[in-house]
């Protein structure tokens, strides 16, 4: 059985695979929640302001309400890089299923079909749909061909811990090299004890245990990375 992962792989015309990470109902619920709060805060604030204008204000408020109800997500999704305020807050983004940014027409479709996703009363259809589809798509997403994904966090290049480069005593496969490199990159975030514990697993390779073993493993990572 294929191990479960939270990525959906798309292949670009350039022939490389890129990873999208579809977002599930929990986080989307909160994005929606934040959006609603923002929209209603805005509507109420404007409502108070516009109330002084009498019927004219009421008319303007109706228009605002219309815009907020139907077009707010569309505008933000298309012009804000696929993100409404709530999605921005929770690091989500709407994309087409092939990884392109979402355009006017798909965005309009996916947001109008909230009418269907909202059935019968409180988004039950949308919730069920996200749970049943592999990429957590609600009906509007399926029809419009869109996807809500977790925004990439923006990885900065990690700094390998300084250590004397050590050549491994035996030829390592690529996966093993990669694991050692990954260990070195992430070890600053483990506790010292845990780092040593992990390095101890490799003691047949490093020939040492405890802090000494850790140093050797980090040195191997340094060596594999390219230090001499």
């Amino acid at each position: 059985m294929q191990p479960i992962d939270t990525v959906r792989t798309i292949e670009t015309p350039e022939g490389v695979e890129l990873h999208l990470r579809p977002a599930g109902p929990v986080v989307r619920l909160w994005a929606f929640f934040v959006d609603q709060v923002v929209v209603w805060m805005g509507l109420i604030l404007f409502g108070i302001g516009l109330a002084y204008l009498g019927p004219l204000g009421l008319g303007l408020w109706f228009i605002l309400f219309f815009l907020a109800q139907w077009l707010y997500p569309v505008f933000f999704e298309v012009l804000g890089g696929g993100r409404t305020l709530g999605k921005r807050w929770l690091n989500l983004r709407v994309l087409m299923t092939d990884g392109r940014p979402v355009g006017w027409s798909p965005s309009l479709i996916r947001n109008l079909l909230r009418v269907v996703d909202g059935l019968p009363g409180a988004y039950t259809v949308g919730l069920v749909s996200t749970l049943l589809t592999r990429d957590f798509q609600r009906i509007g997403d399926i029809v419009a061909g869109t996807l809500v994904v977790h925004e990439e966090a923006g990885v900065q290049a990690p700094v390998l811990p300084l250590a004397e480069p050590v050549a491994p005593t035996l030829a390592l496969t690529l996966e093993e090299q990669s694991a050692i490199l990954a260990f070195a990159e992430r070890s600053p975030r483990f506790t010292a004890a845990r780092s040593e514990e992990l390095a101890d697993v490799l003691s047949p390779l490093s020939g040492a245990r405890g802090a000494g073993g850790l140093k050797v493993v980090l040195g191997m990572a340094r060596y594999l990375w390219g230090g001499r």
Partner: peptide, 30 residues
């Protein structure tokens, strides 16, 4: 995040490949 499970697994595979001796030197807890 905290314990590097994935790394531990990869390391174990590597260690298992290295020696026929099963190394169970980890603390019982983990």
């Amino acid at each position: 995040h905290l314990e590097g499970w994935d790394l531990e697994l990869a390391f174990r595979r590597l260690a298992a490949r290295l020696s026929l001796v099963v190394l169970l030197l980890l603390g019982a807890r983990s």
